[in-house]
């Protein structure tokens, strides 16, 4: 069957098997910025935003979200023009191997859209489905707080 998505603002059409999960469809079509690990919804490495809401793409059937807007980490910023969250994660040392980072930043991005002034507790709750094997969580919470500051200042320096 064919599905259409708007991925990072661009319309894409893919041929899929109706029993596939979104993660596999996106990675097969070049979106290797989305990571996959547990395939059970427990690690959060495969997080994408679907109509702005973070989801584990390994538990979402690709056919179910036909027509939706999907945002991957590449959709919020890039090397030359990083989103304040991306810059903050690097500056604060919240990235080591980087496997969890795309998913974690997207969960944080969705949080800040809903709640631009989160408490530490709000941040921990929003990132509770994104597991990190290396950095630990202290730097990640600090990075989100730093990003809030950058966003408020309206600059990323």
């Amino acid at each position: 069957m064919k599905v259409k998505y708007i991925i990072n603002g661009k319309e894409e059409e893919y041929e899929i098997h109706p029993g596939e999960v979104l993660l596999d469809v996106l990675r097969r079509n070049g979106h290797s910025e989305i990571k996959g690990n547990c395939y059970l919804g427990t690690c959060g490495a495969c997080t994408v935003l679907i109509d702005g809401e973070p989801h584990t793409s390994c538990t979402i059937l690709a056919a179910k979200v036909n027509g939706k807007h999907i945002t991957t980490i590449k959709g919020i910023g890039d090397l030359n023009n990083p989103h304040p969250l991306q810059k903050a994660f690097v500056d604060v040392g919240a990235v080591q191997c980087g496997f969890c980072t795309p998913g974690t930043i997207l969960s944080a991005y969705a949080l800040l859209k809903k709640n631009p002034n989160p408490t530490d507790e709000d941040i921990k709750k929003a990132l509770d489905g994104n597991l990190c094997r290396c950095t630990g969580y202290v730097q990640q919470v600090e990075a989100v707080k730093f990003a809030v500051k950058l966003l408020k200042e309206g600059k990323d320096e």
Partner: peptide, 12 residues
């Protein structure tokens, strides 16, 4: 409710 599962799964 916020104690159930994770944010990602609560969305699903």
């Amino acid at each position: 409710l916020p104690e159930i599962a994770t944010e990602l799964l609560r969305n699903q």
